[in-house]
Design a protein around this nucleic acid. Structure first.
Lengths: 234, 234
DNA sequence: GTCTATAGCCCGATAGAC
DNA sequence: GTCTATCGGGCTATAGAC
């Protein structure tokens, strides 16, 4: 396993304001016109810089994309952790799907990830971290109240995320067929859970979501780990 | 409203074998390398043709993409209708998410749709047709048996599609966290439904999925309509 | 840290001959 | 229906001066 540490050229520091401006411009360009619109020239012109600066800070355009994914992922993860702490976990998971910018970005990243290894690895890492954090928060809440949803915390999280994603992505395309019914159902389910498992009291035993029978394994406590393994792809 | 009927140049017929070969090559290229890899030159070289033929059959590259979406959409819709007729509707919906080629294509189309009006319209149209067909099949089956899922058919369809999409797309990225639990839950739910609402008998009254209370509105019978409205974007 | 200059390639789209 | 030729542009990435 090679570490890819060729240093052929000087490269700018990771803390540079110019570098940040380039990442900002890239994120905006991706949202507005899609990732293929991100070229050194367009990026520079949007940021009011010379095109060659892009390659001073990023060896390749893929390195730039990786930086954009990381900053977006870190930001979303941060928001998620805050939301999980300040409201009912499942509702936080449901609401997290409501950020238009994040949704647009994640569709772009998904398409990128399908064909670019380095980006796939980043996307995977963030998706897994988010899921772990969500499942851990839900597990903790259920344990505090001795409650049981009738499904594992992971199942509840996966289904909630899946529904939130589909509904939000579709509505961005102007699709709304079946959305009302589904939103109403999820709202009812969340309210039922919240009335059975209130934010900070104890003991309730009846399943809040009688979805079936399940062996509710717990994901256990989770720390949000800072990047591990091969430190970077750049 | 203009019909965009400029005919500045001769354009090839829609039934040409060469045209089909170009659509084939485009679809393959999109799957393998993503939609930005589709250029007239690369397309032609993959199909063993001259690049200028692309513009003989398609005025712009966007017209080509629209054609690819339409062919893929028609094909998926056709498969779906067959599957809905030959097995339990919800299971057919669940299984329909299992085609890797279709999944890859739809991520690409989604990214394209985010930034290109003509493609967004096509994607929307197919998504709505599929949902209508699915909900109609489920409604019909429930009526035949006088059964009730506890949620509207649209809700059941939306949730099933959402879960299938998320699980399949994630597994394409190598993500599997929480998948086992969720798949097992869905399998149990489908089996429960199928035992309460068998493929072709009558009368069962107990809700198969006790998911909550619902006013099960029916989508009514649905025909798969051939393209309506502005006939084409080309 | 930012600049000029440049190599070498790919792009969409059209015109008009055959 | 397919070809040759071509316009006018954009692209990544590097080298080396300031």
């Amino acid at each position: 396993m090679k570490v890819d540490s060729r240093k052929g050229r000087r490269r700018g520091s990771e803390t540079s304001a110019t570098r940040t401006a380039l990442i900002d411009a890239a994120e905006q360009l991706i949202c507005e016109e899609g990732y293929p619109a991100v070229s050194a020239r367009r990026l520079a012109s949007k940021a009011g810089l010379k095109p060659q600066l892009v390659h001073y800070y990023f060896r390749t355009m893929d390195d730039l994309f990786v930086a954009v994914v990381r900053r977006g992922g870190d930001r979303s993860l941060e928001h998620l952790v805050k939301a999980l702490a300040s409201s009912q976990p499942l509702r936080a998971v449901w609401n997290a799907g409501n950020d238009p910018r994040a949704t647009t970005l994640s569709v772009e990243f998904l398409a990128l990830a399908n064909h670019r290894k380095a980006i796939r690895a980043e996307v995977k890492r963030y998706a897994e971290q988010m899921r772990m954090v969500q499942a851990a928060a839900l597990t903790r809440q259920l344990q505090e109240h001795g409650a049981d949803l009738g499904v594992t915390p992971y199942t509840a999280v996966v289904l909630t995320v899946a529904a939130a994603n589909l509904l939000f992505m579709e509505s961005a395309l102007g699709i709304s067929l079946g959305h009302e019914d589904t939103q109403a159902f999820i709202e009812r389910s969340l309210q039922k859970i919240e009335s059975n498992v209130p934010p900070s009291k104890s003991a309730e035993t009846s399943p809040a979501l009688p979805l079936g029978t399940a062996n509710s394994r717990s994901p256990g406590p989770v720390k949000v780990a800072r990047r591990r393994g091969p430190k970077a792809v750049r």
